[in-house]
């Protein structure tokens, strides 16, 4: 009886059956990280409190081998033809009206949306975050039911400083390791954003969240719906990630 009790206590104290944060983060990373080039159509619907909805459409091309991506705005009319090109460390914004390229920072807003340049970068989750621990040094992971889906709920904290949020809570589906919900906190522990990953599609053996909702918890009434469609994983031409291509396409 004593042995059973000790085993039970051990199980409780070590969180038997609960995966580690690193393991879950790696699983998430493996689920999402595309080895191929990718192109897709991205649609952002922004709803701001007291204002109508704003629809932003763009074409997105990404090549991981040299950390490049190209974004071409296709809507709204005021943004149509504008673009963003990143090749290695260089990040340019192209303005159709003036036909000029301008160097911009990673935190530049894309097409007047709340999305920033670094949101389109591919950075390893495990390089950015690690599991947060409670006062007893135990990782903050628990089992929960989200809707009707069994999930792992885990708290993670930033390992580096150049991330938007230093603290996040993930709800990861137990059956397939997909992220279903995420809450992001400021360094003063204020809830800033809740994200829901509503629908995934499988492309080349990897999962792509094709329907996401980002709710601004700080400024109530603001939310952004992100939809990804037309995903193609065939190899992209080198010429695509060049200034002349963006310039010609925008004409």
């Amino acid at each position: 009886m004593r042995t059973i009790l000790l085993i039970a206590l051990f199980v409780v104290s070590t969180g038997f059956g609960l995966p580690g944060a690193d393991e879950l983060l790696k699983r998430l990373e493996n689920n999402y990280k595309m080895g191929n080039d990718i192109s897709a159509t991205v649609s952002l619907t922004q709803q701001k409190a007291g204002q109508g909805a704003k629809l932003i459409n763009m074409l997105y091309y990404r090549r991981d081998t040299d950390n490049s991506f190209l974004i071409i705005m296709t809507g709204p009319e005021s943004e149509k033809g504008n673009g963003y090109l990143r090749v290695g460390d260089n990040f340019w914004m192209y303005r159709r009206n003036t036909r000029t390229f301008q160097h911009v920072n990673r935190d530049e807003n894309i097409g007047g949306s709340d999305a920033k340049g670094d949101d389109f970068e591919t950075r390893n989750l495990t390089e950015l975050y690690e599991g947060a621990k409670d006062s007893s040094g135990k990782e903050i992971i628990s089992e929960e039911i989200l809707g009707k889906i069994p999930v792992w709920k885990m708290e993670i904290k930033a390992k580096v400083k150049d991330v938007d949020y230093p603290k996040k809570i993930y709800w990861v589906q137990q059956s397939n390791g997909l992220l279903l919900k995420e809450t992001a906190y400021s360094s003063s522990h204020t809830l800033m954003q809740t994200s829901y990953y509503l629908k995934y599609t499988q492309v080349a053996g990897k999962f792509v969240p094709v329907n996401q909702i980002f709710i601004d918890e700080f400024e109530k009434g603001n939310k952004t719906i992100l939809e990804i469609s037309g995903i193609v994983t065939k190899k992209l031409e080198d010429a695509l990630f060049t200034k002349p291509y963006l310039e010609n396409l925008s004409k």
């Binding site: 935190d107 400083k161 150049d162 991330v163 938007d164 949020y165 992001a184 003063s188 800033m192 700080f218």
Partner: peptide, 15 residues
């Protein structure tokens, strides 16, 4: 009143 600001490390901060 509340504010949302990006701190010197680029992280969102609320106060």
């Amino acid at each position: 009143m509340r504010i949302r600001v990006t701190d010197i490390n680029g992280q969102y901060q609320a106060a």
